[in-house]
């Protein structure tokens, strides 16, 4: 059974229109015009227990708004969100006790206190039995390598150390679902790697459901088998990452290298995109086309030296997709 279910969820924000200039500022003191911003637009999905799903989209795509609706701190304008069989915003406190949340850009740790003291406060907030708390703390301290700084005040920690502490804090009470809003933002490559490996392990070993928003595709590749991709509040793709290339209609690239320039080559199975003389670059027209098909069509006698087939880089696929969005609008899954 799905532990998170979103059905035709919409969130519309009403924002006051700021008028420019001194006159505008004065006018807005007496009358305010509002504009409506549709942050989430008819999104539906269901997430099963134990899944790890990445919620990907550019800035302003409505990722954080969706996380806030699932955690109960925003109410949908229409549609329904159910988490663990409950409506999160009307059961905020019960829901909060069963989930863990990490906001990459907001700290839940007490700034002036040692990390350990913040953890201890969480023990009280979530009413964690002492023995379970001690076990979890020991496990998380070792997994996230926090022993060296657990007794240092939060304000003295590096961003990477702080983020590890934030994640540990969100997991101390064994939540059923862990929501992470851009957990790797601002981290260096080593810190990102530590966080990603840890989250993948938590999902695999402990069965904690993970929902993660990010702009960083590597987060998704390493943690989440499932990808939910949004833009302008709308769902663009929901499925396994490896199916994204097909869904977005991206094509594989084939490079043929010759000993002598064979001149212009035209093929039915592949489209020539760049001709460098000795090296020619083709795009394969369909997923079913194999190298063998191309080589058969090419025939012998061309002094062919090397063949290289490249899968499209996923980041490039997504970038091209966003850039060509208007043209591709009809191709949405």
């Amino acid at each position: 059974m799905a532990i998170i279910a979103a059905s035709s969820v919409e969130k519309i924000f009403r924002q006051p229109k700021r008028q420019s200039g001194f006159g505008g500022a004065l006018r807005s003191l007496f009358s305010r015009e509002h504009t409506e911003v549709r942050a989430v637009d008819g999104i539906s999905f269901a997430i099963e227990g134990g899944e790890a799903a990445g919620y990907l989209g550019p800035n302003g795509a409505g990722k954080s708004t969706m996380i806030k609706m699932m955690t109960g701190i925003l109410v949908p304008s229409s549609g329904t969100v159910e988490v663990l069989g409950r409506e999160p915003h009307s059961n905020r406190i019960t829901n909060a006790a069963e989930i863990g949340v990490v906001f990459g850009q907001r700290s839940q740790l007490w700034w002036d206190l040692p990390v350990r003291d913040s953890f201890d406060l969480n023990r009280h907030i979530y009413d964690i039995p002492a023995s379970r708390f001690a076990d979890n703390l020991a496990r998380l301290t070792s997994m996230l390598d926090m022993a060296g700084y657990i007794d240092r005040p939060v304000r003295q920690l590096s961003l990477g150390q702080r983020m590890r502490a934030e994640i540990a804090m969100a997991l101390l009470h064994d939540p059923k679902i862990l929501f992470l809003d851009e957990p790797t933002i601002g981290l260096d490559v080593v810190a990102k790697d530590v966080v990603r490996k840890f989250l993948a392990e938590v999902n695999r070993e402990r069965g904690t459901t993970i929902i993660l928003t990010t702009h960083d595709l590597v987060d998704i590749e390493e943690i989440c088998p499932r990808l939910i991709m949004v833009d302008d509040g709308k769902l663009l793709f929901d499925g396994e990452l490896r199916h994204l290339r097909t869904a977005l209609g991206s094509r594989r690239r084939l490079k043929l290298e010759f000993g002598t320039d064979p001149g212009a080559i035209t093929l039915k199975t592949a489209q020539l995109v760049t001709d460098e003389g000795l090296a020619k670059h083709f795009l394969l027209e369909s997923q079913q086309t194999s190298i063998l098909d191309v080589l058969t069509e090419l025939g012998s006698g061309h002094d062919l030296k090397d063949v290289k087939l490249e899968e499209p880089n996923i980041e490039e696929v997504i970038r091209t997709f966003y850039q060509n969005k208007p043209a591709l609008a009809g191709a949405r899954p």
Binding site: K68, T71, G72, I73, R92, I93, T94, A96, A97, V101, F103, R106, S107, Q108, I125, Y126
Partner: peptide, 11 residues
């Protein structure tokens, strides 16, 4: 917006 952090806890 940090008030959201308090709303995320059973508090």
């Amino acid at each position: 917006g940090d008030v959201a952090v308090f709303l995320l806890k059973p508090l």
